[in-house]
Amino acid sequence: MPNPPSPSFPPAMLFDLDGTLLDSAPDMLVTANAMLADRGRAPLTLAQLRPVVSKGARAMLGVAFPELPTAERDAHVPEFLDRYERIVGQHARLFDGVAAMLAALDAAGSAWGIVSNKPEYLARRVLPQQGWETRCAVLIGGDTLAERKPHPLPLLTAAERIGVAAGACVYVGDDQRDIVAARAAGMPSVAALWGYRLHDDDPLAWQADVLVDAPRQLLDPAAWPAASPSS
C-alpha cells in the first residue's frame, strides 16, 4: 500500500502581533513607567503589566492609573501612543521559536500576514525591524478598517487581500477576541498559549480549533488545524 501523504501547512496564516509574534511587553512597560515617573509615581513591574498588553493602551493605562475615572484614563491614550511610538521595538523581541516558524512557512510557500488591533502606523514600524517588509503578505491594524477584532471584518479583508478564501486561512492569536473573530470569519484558529492573558482567562472556553503551548510546535504541519481552500 502507498504511504499516506505527508501533512502540509495551510495555504495561508494570519497572526495577531503583540503577544503572538512579538513580545512587546517590555516596550509597553518603558512607556507606562515614563508616564508614571513624570507624575511622581512609582514604576510598574513587568508582571503587573504583562497580562493586559494584548488588551491595548486603555487596559494598560488602567493598570498604571487604577484610581482615575475611565474617561480621564482614556484621555491619556494619545500620550501613551506618542511615547510608545518613540521607542517601538527597542525593547521588544520575537517570542522564542517565532523566527523559525515563519521561516518554515516561507520555505513551504505558505502566505502569512498580520491582523492586529494595534494602530496600523505602529504595527508597520515592526516590519522593517524584523525584516518582514517583503515576507508579510498583508497587515491590518486596529484602525485600518471601520471594525476591529473581535469583528470578523479585519480577518476577512486580510484573506481577500492575500487572495485566498477565509477557510483557507488559519488565524493565530493569544486573546479570546482573536478566536471569536476567527470563528465569525469561518476561519480555523489557533490559541497561542505563550502570549498575554489575565490569570482568570480560560483558553479552553475560547473554543479554538487548536491550543498550542509554544511557537516551535507549529514547525510541524500536523499541529495546524485543517484549512479548506474551497470554503
Rank of each mutant, 00 (worst) to 15 (best):
P4G: 00
P5A: 05
S6T: 06
S6G: 01
P7G: 01
F9G: 00
F9H: 00
M13Q: 11
F15A: 04
D16C: 05
L17P: 04
L17H: 00
T20N: 02
D23Y: 04
A25L: 15
V30W: 09
A32V: 14
N33A: 07
A37Q: 07
A37S: 12
D38E: 13
L44C: 01
L44I: 00
V53K: 00
S54I: 02
A57D: 05
A59K: 01
A59Y: 02
A59E: 12
A64Y: 02
A71P: 01
E85C: 06
Q90Y: 05
R93S: 09
F95N: 04
S110P: 06
Y121R: 08
Y121W: 11
V126Y: 10
Q129V: 07
A137E: 06
L139I: 15
G141K: 04
P152S: 14
L153D: 15
L156N: 13
A165I: 09
C169H: 10
V170K: 07
D174C: 10
D178G: 01
R183S: 13
S189L: 02
L193T: 07
D209Y: 11
V210M: 13
L211G: 07
L211W: 05
D213F: 02
A222C: 12
W224T: 04
P225V: 12
P225Q: 13
A226W: 12
A227C: 13
S230V: 03
